[in-house]
Design a protein around this nucleic acid. Structure first.
Length: 352
DNA sequence: TGCCAGGCGGGGT
DNA sequence: ACCCCGCATGGC
């Protein structure tokens, strides 16, 4: 890990209790337990990072927030930029050491990463070159939990980008936990495995279709194997591999889950969409999934998983016919703003 | 209105 | 190891 950030002192003032009352369902507000300001490296773009694949409620154009269970207690991370610093606030009922909290924030936001080698590799890439220019400084945002990674992955099965993320967003908003922070804001957590087991078939209300069965199979498996709910880096490789035996979890979903939750950049989640692009843009001949995977490793080496993540962003996650048309004729032009739905505008344009 | 969309597993070769 | 099909759901 490179020492690219200078740490400023923690700011413990502010956030006095408010006088306003909730007249329905009084709820304990999560107290601020730690706040720190980090000197932002020029190589890190917070707003591009935060908005990529952020669902409504997770990012609002100013701040990024997420909620997870840590040591059995709901814990929220709020991040924003203030005067060139990355300001991180942690809210929880648990007492957690600052070092652990910072590690979690770093895992989620990726501000520790050095992408210079990756930029060199993609700087002349026909589909990825914007990553080293207009999108420079954008990192992949990771989920804190392995479970969350799988939940997102299953939602992407045989679905368009819009359908997959609508599905996931509905699952979070309909069935997830909701907390109010000390600063008055509301934050959502993805439903836990046990919560989903209670919900059962009603998860179909989120539009999951036949994926409901897979999600419930996974919830059951996670519920029976609490070791899987440890911090992602502490889950053994052997235990991870077992997850592929859950019915409905194939190679693609497994890799998406590990990419999103563990930053496994060396594990390319190759689907039909990626295989078609690699076939027609890079190979000029049809490739099956295995051949496409091999080519992705040749092209991008240990960064092939991250390349595929960024490819969905540079092509705005368009359906394959549209993506091919753009890739062959038009300019690669990632949509970062405005009313059109793209991975970078989900947070404001996704209708639930 | 059918038809398709970042898969998957079961059942064929 | 392949190939092929059906599977829910929602959007065009």
């Amino acid at each position: 890990m490179l020492p690219i950030f200078g740490l400023h002192g923690a700011d413990s003032k502010s956030y006095l209790p408010r006088e306003d009352h909730l007249d329905v369902m009084p709820m304990t507000r999560l107290p601020l337990i730690y706040k720190i300001s980090l000197d932002l490296a020029a190589s890190y773009n917070f707003h591009l990072t935060a908005r990529a694949y952020a669902i409504p409620g997770e990012y609002d154009g100013e701040r990024y927030q997420c909620l997870y269970t840590l040591e059995g207690m709901p814990t929220a991370l709020v991040a924003r930029v203030h005067q060139g610093d990355l300001v991180l606030s942690f809210f929880s009922e648990a007492k957690l050491p600052p070092s652990g909290l910072l590690e979690i924030a770093s895992h989620i936001l990726g501000f520790h990463e050095d992408l210079e080698e990756f930029y060199t590799i993609v700087s002349r890439d026909p589909l990825l070159h914007p990553v080293s220019t207009t999108l420079r400084g954008m990192h992949m945002k990771a989920t804190y939990s392995l479970w969350n990674g799988f939940l997102i992955a299953i939602c992407q099965q045989n679905a368009s980008f819009r359908q997959g993320w609508t599905m996931y967003s509905k699952i979070v908003h309909l069935f997830g936990d909701t907390k109010i922070l000390e600063d008055g804001s509301t934050v959502h957590a993805p439903p836990t495995p046990n919560a989903l087991l209670t919900i059962g078939e009603r998860i179909r209300k989120a539009g999951t279709g036949y994926r409901a069965e897979t999600i419930l199979n996974l919830a059951q498996y996670f519920s029976e194997h609490p070791e899987l709910q440890a911090p992602p880096s502490e889950v053994s490789e052997k235990l991870l591999q077992q997850l592929k035996r859950v019915k409905g979890v194939g190679e693609y979903s497994f890799r998406v889950a590990l990419l999103f939750s563990q930053r496994r950049y060396d594990l390319p989640p190759v689907d039909r969409w990626v295989a078609r692009l690699l076939s027609e843009i890079y190979a000029n001949k049809p490739l099956n999934l295995k051949e496409a995977e091999e080519l992705s490793k040749q092209l991008w080496r240990s960064w092939c998983g991250l390349s595929i993540f960024f490819m969905t962003i540079t092509l705005n996650a368009a359906i394959i016919s549209k993506a091919l048309e753009v890739a062959k004729t038009g300019r690669i032009n990632p949509i970062t703003d405005g009313d059109q739905l793209s991975p970078l505008t989900l947070w404001r344009n996704l209708k639930l």
